[in-house]
Computed example of a mutant assay.
Amino acid sequence: MYEVLIVIYLLVAIGLVGLILIQQGKGADMGASFGAGASGTLFGSSGSGNFLTRSTAVLAIGFFTLSLVIGNLSANHAKQDNQWNDLGSAAEQVVDQAPVTQPKSESEIPD
């Protein structure tokens, strides 16, 4: 389930970026640069949102919701026990199989 949510999260993020890039800014009209229309107001004209703005809002809500869900799942996600975590037992097995040699005395060590 975690992997499915990651794939959906990636698709929502790509869709959100695409929708944001194809939208036209509020001040992008030629008339807005010369003071025509409702550009004199503080935030521009506040008409009803078209399809692009509504779908961007839906994808943004989905993006934040998926972010919270994935963050919650990854925080509570128990990691699987891996063989690499317990290398002590494998080292003990190798030591047990190795031949035991007697340490050399000081007289046998060359100068």
Rank of each mutant, 00 (worst) to 15 (best):
N50Q: 07
L21Y: 04
I6H: 03
P103Q: 08
N50Y: 02
A36D: 08
F64N: 04
M1W: 06
R54S: 10
S46R: 15
T101H: 12
S39N: 11
P110Q: 06
V7I: 11
G35M: 04
G44M: 03
D111C: 00
V7K: 15
G71T: 00
S45L: 03
Y9E: 04
Q93P: 00
T101D: 12
V58M: 14
V94W: 11
A75S: 14
G88I: 07
T56S: 10
S67Q: 04
G49H: 06
A78E: 14
A13H: 01
Q102K: 03
V17A: 14
S48E: 10
G31I: 01
G37C: 03
T53M: 09
V12D: 04
G49S: 14
A60P: 00
A98C: 05
A90F: 12
G15R: 00
G49L: 11
G25C: 00
S33I: 14
A90E: 13
G31E: 06
L5R: 05
Q97Y: 08
G37E: 02
V69P: 05
S89Q: 13
M1Q: 07
A28T: 09
G88K: 13
L10R: 07
Y2I: 08
A38M: 12
G71R: 03
F43S: 08
I8H: 06
G47A: 11
R54C: 05
I61C: 06
S107R: 00
D81K: 02
